[in-house]
């Protein structure tokens, strides 16, 4: 029976299901085996997937559900479905708008300043001899490594109106700046510190992008007599654009979530002038335990971030 038709080569190499197994059963066994083999890769994936679904997908869905209920952690009543009430509450909440305004102001200042300086430094450093480029990049990147509490507390000391280092240094020029005590200056001070603290990542990415531009382009431009800013305008900038877009979007997304800087340096003050949206969400959820409202504002922030990313993408594409 078994010697009627010789099995094809590859199947013969697989271990038989049993010594008496018939050809058909053997084949079926192999098919099952093959399926097991194909899916066995999921064993490698399983530990990550458990975490991914429990702590990323589930919170995402759960957070959306939370935004639709009236969940006050300290109240004995079970959470009740309120539809879009949390969202309409935000629309009528002056504190929400104040926080949004503060966040917008921060993004509007920190992104152009940060990316502008990062781009300038990247281009300048790139024009220096290769040997020393790494050194300068290292120095400018270093503040990024420091934890926000340390950076924040230190800058808080720099900015202090009486004992602060900045005003002490400016004293000899008879200048006195209300770094953190004036509602207008407070946000500027936060932005200044943030540029120092966050410039490292865009700088590194932009420098890597500059390295990818073939030298031959510049050589060709030099023959055509293009130098200085023309070189930048007609070669560097267009070729760097996709990476610049990436960095800008990254920076916008990060800036909308600003929290540590204002939380530590100004504590949201003076007069809530620097209480940004993440700070207000934190207060709502973890000081007043209004989880539903906090989750709803998180989703509004998420929506704003996505809109901005898509908008940026389109603007750059159309050009």
């Amino acid at each position: 029976m078994s010697n009627q038709t010789p099995l094809p080569e590859p199947q013969e190499q697989l271990p038989a299901v049993g010594p008496t197994a018939r050809g058909v059963e053997n084949y079926r066994g192999n098919a099952r085996r093959r399926i097991i083999r194909r899916y066995s890769g999921y064993l490698f994936l399983a530990p990550y997937l458990v975490l991914f679904f429990s702590f990323l997908i589930l919170p995402l869905i759960y957070g959306f559900w939370l935004s639709l209920v009236d969940y006050e952690m300290l109240s004995p009543e079970p959470p009740g479905f309120v539809g879009l009430d949390n969202y309409s509450e935000a629309m009528d909440d002056p504190y929400f708008w104040q926080a949004m305004k503060a966040t917008g102001l921060y993004v509007g200042m920190a992104v152009p300043l940060g990316i502008g300086l990062a781009l300038l430094m990247a281009v300048l450093i790139d024009s220096l001899p290769q040997k020393r480029q790494g050194f300068y990049r290292l120095m400018i990147f270093m503040p990024t490594m420091i934890t926000i509490t340390v950076a924040g507390l230190v800058w808080r000391w720099f900015y202090h109106s009486e004992f602060g280092l900045f005003n002490a240094m400016l004293e000899r020029f008879d200048i006195w700046v209300p770094w953190l005590t004036d509602t207008t200056w407070a946000m500027r001070s936060i932005v200044l510190m943030s540029v120092w603290w966050t410039i490292g990542v865009p700088l590194v990415i932009l420098m890597a992008g500059l390295k990818q531009i073939p030298v031959s382009y510049y050589e060709a431009a030099a023959i055509d007599g293009a130098t200085g800013y023309r070189r930048f305008l007609y070669i560097t900038f267009p070729l760097l654009r996709p990476i610049l877009l990436f960095v800008v979007v990254l920076s916008i997304i990060g800036s909308f979530q600003v929290f540590g800087q204002t939380f530590i340096i100004t504590e949201g003050g003076p007069e809530l002038a620097t209480r940004v949206i993440m700070h207000y969400i934190y207060d709502t959820a973890f000081n007043f335990y209004r989880m539903g409202y906090g989750a709803a504002m998180s989703w509004i922030l998420f929506a704003v971030i996505i809109v901005f990313s898509l908008l940026q993408f389109r603007i750059f594409r159309e050009r």
Partner: peptide, 12 residues
């Protein structure tokens, strides 16, 4: 953004 997950993760 990981920050928007903080409230639900806390409750989980």
């Amino acid at each position: 953004p990981p920050q928007i997950l903080l409230v639900p993760v806390y409750l989980i």
